[in-house]
C-alpha cells in the first residue's frame, strides 16, 4: 500500500514495528513503532504518558515527511 500511495506522487511515512518488513516491502520513509499489537501506545503507561508517546512518534513522522530522502530511510532518532 505504501508503494501505491508513493506512486501517485504523495509522500508517505510508514509507522511500523517490524522495520525489516517495511524495508522489504519498499517503504521510503520509515518510523519505528512500539509493539505489534499497539504500535502507537503502551498500555503499561498511564493514558497521559501514552498519548505523549504517541505524539512523539507522530511528530517524528511529520519530520520524516518534511525531510528529503534519496532512498529508504529509517527515522529512528
Amino acid at each position: 500500500m505504501v508503494k501505491e500511495i508513493e506512486r501517485v506522487g504523495i509522500p508517505v511515512v510508514h509507522i511500523c514495528t517490524v522495520v525489516p518488513i517495511s524495508l522489504t516491502v519498499g517503504a521510503n520513509r520509515i518510523v519505528p513503532a512500539i509493539a505489534i499489537p499497539h504500535p502507537l501506545g503502551n498500555p503499561v503507561k498511564t493514558m497521559e504518558e501514552e498519548k505523549q508517546l504517541r505524539r512523539e512518534i507522530v511528530l517524528k513522522s511529520l519530520k520524516a515527511l518534511q525531510t528529503e530522502v534519496h532512498g529508504q530511510t529509517v527515522f529512528d532518532k
Binding site: I10, V13, I15, I21, A27, P39
Partner: peptide, 14 residues
C-alpha cells in the same frame, strides 16, 4: 487521496 488534495499520508502497520 490525490483528487481530494491530500499532501501527505501517515500509514500505520501492526
Amino acid at each position: 487521496l490525490l483528487a481530494d488534495g491530500v499532501q501527505a499520508v501517515i500509514l500505520t502497520s501492526t
